[in-house]
Amino acid sequence: MRVRILRQQTSLSESYWENFRVDVPKDMTVAGLLDHINFNDDIIDENGNKTTRIGWECSCLQGICGACAMVINDIPALACETFIKDLKKDEITIRPLRKFPVIHDLIVDRSVIHENLKKINLYIGEYHPVKAKNLKKAEKEHRQQYDVAKCLKCGICLEVCPNYVNGNSFFGALFANECYLVSSRNETEKKEILKNYEKHFGNTCSKSFSCMDLCPMKIQTIASVAGLNKNSFHN
């Protein structure tokens, strides 16, 4: 199997493609594949030339930390839960997420995500939940809050979003979900949050919701948006 990897030695150097030939089981993940290439003492490319180890980020290796987000065969995904057998082509192309600055090979700097959340100063502070009308609704809200708090901040929703460019003004789905979580668990914060939500998400989102198709935690951003719009209406 041929593996093409877009590499970049430092944040300032040029990127280039490097190809590898590997023979690995199909039920291995892309994380396992990268480990396999890196495991040898000498790393050899497809032409038999010695090269350097491939830089990539990982921590949990089981889909709950978001470190290994990258673009695999043109689709942003977590390497640790993308299986070779599920990839349609015989050739695998791997590149870093495109909407974040590259630090080294497949490692990108996603600090804009945290900087934007910090800028808006989103936090629950005191638990003052919005009172649901009935038990069923309360359970539904609780489920959505639980799901949203599982957000990995991996950046995949931003990578796939047609509206997200660089995080200067539009902050993307993870921001909308965070707004929902905070406003639903602390009613007193709602007004200020809604203002920022409109400015940095609501007014720009074209509702393609491609973010939901690829979210590793399957967060239903549309439900968060509905919750926030409902709050908007009440105000």
Binding site: I64, K118, L122, Y123, I124, G125, Y146, A149, K150, V182
Partner: peptide, 16 residues
């Protein structure tokens, strides 16, 4: 996901 839920809450407190 107890650990993850606590991490999410603490991140917001740190942000505050």
């Amino acid at each position: 996901s107890t650990g993850k839920q606590i991490v999410s809450a603490l991140i917001m407190e740190v942000r505050r």
